[in-house]
Amino acid sequence: MVATHTSEERELAEMIIAALNLEDVSPEDIDPEAPLFGDGLGLDSIDALEIAMEIAKRYGVQIRAEDEENRRIFSSLRSLSAHIQQHR
């Protein structure tokens, strides 16, 4: 069962879909608690960097995507959104 998005999560999901040109994916398809990277959406390390750049551009929040310590932040839409809300 897919958990419901907060409005911030939905906005972030829309941003990711647009930035990565994800084919045939709608915000509802991104489970806020599922892993963002790996098999589900088929995102890789370059996508993480692109998302980090878009987040810096839109929210003014800097996150180094390649940093080991930031793995947890990028682990799901929910954790990424929570991090942005805390730091914006």
Partner: peptide, 8 residues
């Protein structure tokens, strides 16, 4: 995060 290999 590991880069996915597009080729087999």
């Amino acid at each position: 995060m590991t880069a996915r290999n597009g080729a087999s």
